[in-house]
Simulated scan of single mutants.
Amino acid sequence: MTTVPYEETRVPVTGGRLTVLRWPAHETGAPVVVALHGITANALSWGRVARALAGRVTLVAPDLRGRAASAGLPGPYGIAAHADDVAAVAGSLGQGRVVLAGHSMGAFVAALAAVRHPERFGPLLLVDGGVGFPAPTGLSPDALLSAVIGPAMDRLSMTFADRAAYRSFWQAHPAFAGSWSPEVEAYIQRDLTGEEPVLRSTCRIEAVRADGTGLFAPDVLSAVRNLPVPATLLWAERGLMDEPQGLYDESRLRAAALPAEAVRTVRIADVNHYTVLTGDRGAQEIAHRLLAAAR
């Protein structure tokens, strides 16, 4: 099985051009969905969802500033910068308001983008992100990021002898055990840059630091409570390391006191923080929700 073909374009943004992947719909005039990846990910993390959508919508996913083919874009970084970049992407499509989706950090970007640019976006789909909690006190920025995203932060300072070594690194990750696919392979390989035997992640560590600490900014934390459009939060039952406790659960969401009339929450069983997007079960559920929102 091969991955679904996509087109690669570039959109003018502050400081340069943002790289954007586009999986076109089979029919002219089909709805458009813009989809945002997580803090150390890239646009191809949405590849399994593209397969599940099966050409029924046009799916547009940028490499966010400081990652993959957009790694060369300069700062300033941060959630607000991404939100403005995404508004530029939406504006370039000539479609009016589009459905906006985001996974993990991308969900926080989506919520803030909807608040900052209400004329650009329709319904939101937040995937295991977008609802924050107060930051732990007494931690340095790097310690805070390691506490939140763990090995994903550690890998940014690692090098790999070849692409097979990088594959082995990810296949040993508990979240991907038994859930490898051509889409996951393409996604993780898009992250690499350099020459053998010194390959490394494309993610700029200064961008990840700025974005990670920015997740706890008041305007970012409050965005999900101030949305001008309806949103659905799909939350994964399991966590970043496939542990039983996910980022969210019923008690945490009750404590978050989300506006029930604006944000619907839906638990996705038997998935973790990664496979809610990259696995078959999660991707099918996301595709179903996106199609409903696009209609």
Rank of each mutant, 00 (worst) to 15 (best):
P24D: 05
G212E: 01
V115D: 05
Q171L: 12
A231S: 06
G91P: 06
A54S: 14
G96P: 09
A25G: 14
I188M: 11
T275A: 00
A207D: 08
Q95R: 15
Q284D: 13
G178A: 09
L258E: 04
A236R: 05
L73T: 10
P31F: 08
A207M: 09
V89A: 08
L192M: 03
H26G: 15
R200T: 10
A186L: 11
D154L: 09
A52M: 09
A41W: 01
A152K: 10
V184L: 14
S146D: 14
Y166P: 07
V49G: 00
V266M: 06
G55D: 07
G239K: 12
L64R: 07
G178N: 06
A262L: 13
L44Y: 08
H117Y: 02
L258S: 07
A269H: 13
T137M: 09
L221K: 06
A83V: 01
T278I: 02
S168K: 15
A177L: 13
A113Q: 08
A80M: 02
P118T: 06
E285D: 13
E206W: 00
Q284S: 07
S168T: 15
A54F: 05
V276L: 14
D249S: 04
V34A: 04
R264L: 13
H82C: 04
P136G: 12
A114V: 10
A177T: 14
S181E: 05
V86P: 02
D249A: 02
P244S: 06
F169W: 15
M158H: 14
T40E: 11
H273Q: 06
L36V: 07
L215Y: 11
A210G: 07
P12Y: 07
A135E: 14
L234R: 06
L234H: 04
G130A: 01
A175M: 01
A293T: 10
V220F: 10
A110I: 01
G138C: 08
L247A: 14
R155E: 14
L112Y: 08
A161D: 15
V86L: 02
V32K: 10
S168W: 07
P218D: 15
L126R: 05
Y6V: 10
A114P: 10
Y77A: 01
T58D: 10
R254W: 01
T137G: 12
A101H: 02
R22F: 03
A223D: 12
A43D: 10
E27R: 15
L59Q: 11
A175I: 01
I188V: 15
E196P: 11
A50Q: 06
L192K: 04
A256C: 11
T193W: 01
M241P: 08
V34R: 06
A43H: 12
V220Y: 09
G75K: 03
P141Y: 05
L221E: 14
Q284M: 05
I149S: 07
A43I: 13
R120L: 09
S45Q: 11
R252Q: 09
D128A: 09
L125T: 03
T202V: 02
T58G: 09
V148C: 08
M105Q: 11
P62Y: 03
T278N: 00
A90P: 08
P136L: 11
T232G: 06
V224D: 07
F216D: 08
A71V: 05
